[in-house]
Amino acid sequence: MPPPLLSRTLDPILGVFTGVLAYYLYETHPRNAIPEELRLASLLKRKYAIWQREREQKLLGSGEDNIDWQAIAASAEKEVDENLRK
């Protein structure tokens, strides 16, 4: 294994920083002319919005799984009242 250039911890951090900086410069350089809708930030925003929408739909469900808690509470109170009267 080759010896570290700076340290075992700093070398990976420097590598990630260099990669992120290089990608940012690639996206923003005028010669590349990447459209705004194809840049990484806008793609991530769109993906996050889709994920949020799907998660909200999953949490809300299709409406069939909705539970009428008031009806359950009323029936429970009715059962308790009947049991107390006995």
Rank of each mutant, 00 (worst) to 15 (best):
R39L: 03
K78F: 07
G61D: 02
K47R: 13
T9G: 09
A76H: 09
I13L: 04
Q70P: 00
M1I: 08
R55F: 10
A41Y: 10
D65F: 04
D65P: 00
G15R: 13
A73V: 08
I72K: 04
P30C: 02
K47E: 14
L59W: 05
Q52N: 14
L59D: 05
S42G: 00
L40A: 07
L38G: 00
M1N: 15
P2T: 12
I34N: 02
S42M: 09
S42E: 15
G19K: 13
L25Y: 06
A22G: 03
K47V: 05
F17T: 15
T9Q: 10
S75Y: 07
N83Q: 08
R55M: 11
F17D: 09
I34A: 02
L59S: 05
E64K: 14
I67V: 05
T28H: 08
E82S: 14
A33M: 05
R8M: 11
R39W: 00
N32F: 12
K47Q: 14
L10C: 04
L10V: 13
M1P: 11
K86D: 08
L21P: 01
V80Y: 11
L59V: 05
L38W: 07
W51V: 02
I50V: 11
R46N: 06
E54S: 08
I34Y: 08
R8S: 10
N66P: 00
L43G: 04
V80M: 12
W69I: 06
E82K: 14
L59M: 12
T9F: 10
R46K: 15
R85S: 14
E64P: 00
K78C: 06
I13Y: 05
S75E: 15
P12L: 04
L10I: 10
R31H: 06
S62C: 04
G63P: 02
P4S: 03
A73L: 11
Q70F: 05
A33P: 01
R85E: 12
L40Y: 05
V16M: 14
S62D: 15
L6C: 06
P30M: 01
E37D: 06
S7T: 05
S75M: 09
E82R: 15
R39D: 01
V16G: 05
S7I: 03
P2I: 10
Y24T: 11
K78E: 15
L21K: 07
L5W: 03
T18Q: 14
P35R: 00
Y24S: 09
N66E: 13
I72T: 00
E64R: 11
G15K: 15
T9I: 15
S62N: 12
E27P: 01
I67H: 04
K58V: 00
L84M: 05
R39P: 02
A76I: 09
